[in-house]
C-alpha cells in the first residue's frame, strides 16, 4: 500500500506546476538520451533521480558550509535520524488510519520540530554538545524502528529505501516535495546570506550588530532539517549527513574566500553526485554509498591540491601598512 501515495487535496494544486516542471525535465533528459545514446538517461525514474541528485549537490554543501564552520557537523546526522522517525510515523499513520500522506512530508515536519528543540535546548543550556546530539539521534532512530516493528506486517519492506536511499524509488511526489524544499532553502539562504555569514563567523559581533542570533540559528537548523529529509531519498538516513560535511571540508582546503568555498563545495558535491549516480547505475550498487565514497575521494584530492597550492605560492608576506589616522574613515559624502 505504500506504493500508491495519494497527496491530501490541499497540497495537490500547489504541486501542480512542479509536476509540469518534472515532465519538462523528463522530456529534456529523453532528448539527451536520444542524442547521446546513454542508457542511464532512458528511464523516467532516472530522470527524477538525477534532478533530485543535482538539487542535493547544491543545497547540502550550501547549508553544510554554515554548519561545518560552526562545529555543527553532526547536527545533520542527528536530524536525519529524527527524520527517519518521521518516516516511520508517516508509514504508521498511513497503515493505521489510511491517511495516504507521503512519509517524506511527516519526516520534514518531525525533523524540523526536532531541529527547533535541539536549538532551544542549546539556547537555554548555552552549548551545543555531543551528548544532547547523540540523545536526539538515538531517540529518533529508536522511535522509528519501534513504530516500524509494531506494524511489521507490510511496512518493513519499504524501510530499506529510507535507510539506504534508492534511485529507482524516487516517485514524482517525492521529487515534487524535494523541489519545494529546494526552493525554500535557496530562497531563505539567498535573502539572509549576510546575516547567516555574520552569525556563522562571529556570533558575538553579530549580536552587537543588532542581529537576533537565536533566530538565525533556528532558521539554520530548520533549513538543515529540510536538506537532510530532501536528500534522504537518494542518500538514505545513514549517509545523508556526509553530503553536508565532506564537500565543505574539501572546499575549505582549497578555497581562500568564503564565496569561493561555497562555490567549490557545490562543484565538489555535484561531481560526486553525478559520477555516483552513473557508477551506481552501471555497477548496480547503492547510490548513497557510491556517492559518499566518491565525495571522500574528491575530498582527498582537494587536501592534496591544497597542500600543493601552499607549497607553490610560498610564504612571502606583503608589506603591512601603517595604521594611518590621517585618512579619515568616518567621512562620507552621502
Amino acid at each position: 500500500m505504500t506504493d500508491v501515495i495519494v497527496q491530501p487535496a490541499v497540497i495537490e494544486p500547489l504541486l501542480g506546476p512542479l509536476y509540469w516542471l518534472l515532465g519538462v525535465w523528463s522530456q529534456l533528459m529523453t532528448g539527451v538520451a536520444r542524442a547521446t545514446g546513454l542508457e542511464v538517461l532512458q528511464y523516467g525514474f532516472m530522470h527524477r533521480a538525477i534532478l533530485v541528485g543535482l538539487c542535493i549537490g547544491v543545497m547540502a554543501p550550501l547549508i553544510g558550509t554554515f554548519l561545518v564552520h560552526r562545529q555543527l557537523a553532526l547536527i545533520g546526522d542527528a536530524l536525519a535520524h529524527t527524520g527517519f522517525a518521521g518516516v516511520a510515523i508517516g508509514l504508521f499513520l498511513n497503515a493505521v488510519f489510511e491517511f495516504g500522506i507521503s512519509p517524506y512530508l511527516t519526516a520534514v515536519i518531525v525533523a524540523m520540530v526536532a531541529a527547533l528543540l535541539i536549538e532551544v535546548i542549546s539556547e537555554t543550556t548555552d552549548a551545543y554538545n555531543d551528548v544532547s546530539m547523540a540523545i536526539v539521534l538515538s531517540t529518533g532512530f529508536a522511535l522509528g524502528t519501534t513504530l516500524i516493528s509494531i506494524n511489521a506486517g507490510g511496512l518493513a519492506v519499504g524501510v530499506n529505501q529510507f535507510l539506504f536511499g534508492n534511485l529507482s524509488t524516487v516517485s514524482t511526489d517525492s521529487a515534487a516535495i524535494l523541489l519545494v524544499l529546494f526552493t525554500i532553502i535557496i530562497g531563505v539562504v539567498g535573502v539572509t546570506r549576510n546575516q547567516l555569514l555574520y552569525v556563522t563567523f562571529d556570533e558575538t559581533a553579530a549580536a552587537v550588530s543588532g542581529l537576533s542570533v537565536n533566530w538565525y540559528n533556528r532558521i539554520m537548523v530548520m533549513l538543515t532539517a529540510m536538506v537532510v529529509v530532501g536528500a534522504m531519498q537518494i542518500m538514505g538516513v545513514i549517509l545523508v549527513a556526509a553530503m553536508l560535511v565532506v564537500p565543505v571540508a574539501g572546499a575549505s582546503q582549497v578555497a581562500r574566500s568564503f564565496n569561493e568555498s561555497l562555490l567549490v563545495s557545490v562543484v565538489l558535491a555535484e561531481i560526486a553526485v553525478v559520477l555516483g549516480i552513473a557508477v551506481s547505475y552501471y555497477g548496480e550498487a547503492t547510490a548513497g554509498g557510491v556517492i559518499v565514497l566518491l565525495a571522500v575521494g574528491v575530498y582527498v584530492l582537494a587536501v592534496l591540491a591544497g597542500k600543493l597550492q601552499t607549497a607553490l605560492t610560498g610564504t612571502e608576506t606583503p608589506e603591512m601598512g601603517a595604521i594611518s589616522p590621517n585618512s579619515d574613515p568616518t567621512t562620507t559624502d552621502d
Binding site: H69, R70, T200, F201, D202, E203, T204, A205, V208, S209, G210, L211, S212, A251, S252, A255, R256, S257, F258, E260, S261
Partner: peptide, 23 residues
Amino acid sequence: FDTGSRIGYVAQHASASKEMPIT
C-alpha cells in the same frame, strides 16, 4: 537595541571562527 549601525565593537580575543575560509 538592534540598530547595529550605531555601534562598533572589537573584542579582546576575537570570538570569531578560527578555521573558516574567509578573506
